[in-house]
């Protein structure tokens, strides 16, 4: 196997340290994060357009009112999460740059579509 270019060993350690302390220092959920709610009904999202502030982390609550599970998926927002029937789940999004971010319900892609608009 080809090895990576030799880095001085001290870098290996500091890289791991940086990664670990990064994990510890980064803030967990803050109270100030804006919250938006999305409902799934009849394999459709309501509303289909969600306006959220840009450059801020968003707490998205998805409430699946159908009797079947759905998977919230957005390639652009790097989000993928199953929402069981009747469940209410939290999905962290962003911070997003201003723009449009499409999402779908993967299990019913034909009807379950929507877009997050960050501005």
């Amino acid at each position: 196997m080809q090895t990576l270019p030799a880095l001085p060993r001290r870098y290996h350690r500091s890289l791991a340290t940086v990664a670990l302390t990064g994990l510890l220092l980064l803030p967990a959920a803050r109270a100030a994060d804006p919250e938006v709610t999305l409902v799934i009904r009849g394999h459709k999202f309501e509303p289909t357009e969600l306006k959220v502030p840009a450059n801020q982390r968003i707490k998205l609550i998805v409430h699946n009112q159908d009797t079947t599970p759905e998977e919230f998926e957005s390639k652009r927002m790097k989000s993928e999460k199953v929402v069981p029937a009747g469940a209410k789940v939290t999905i962290w999004l962003g911070p997003l740059k201003p723009g449009r971010y499409e999402f779908v319900g993967e299990y019913h892609e034909a009807s379950a579509k929507g877009v997050v608009i960050a501005e």
Binding site: G22, L23, L26, P27, A28, A29, R57, K59, M77, K78, S79, E80, K81, T90, I91, W92, L93, G94, P95, L96, K97
Partner: peptide, 16 residues
Amino acid sequence: ARALAQAGLVQSGATP
């Protein structure tokens, strides 16, 4: 790393 961000345990930013 992605799962940690989605769980809200880290705030890595979704900016690719």
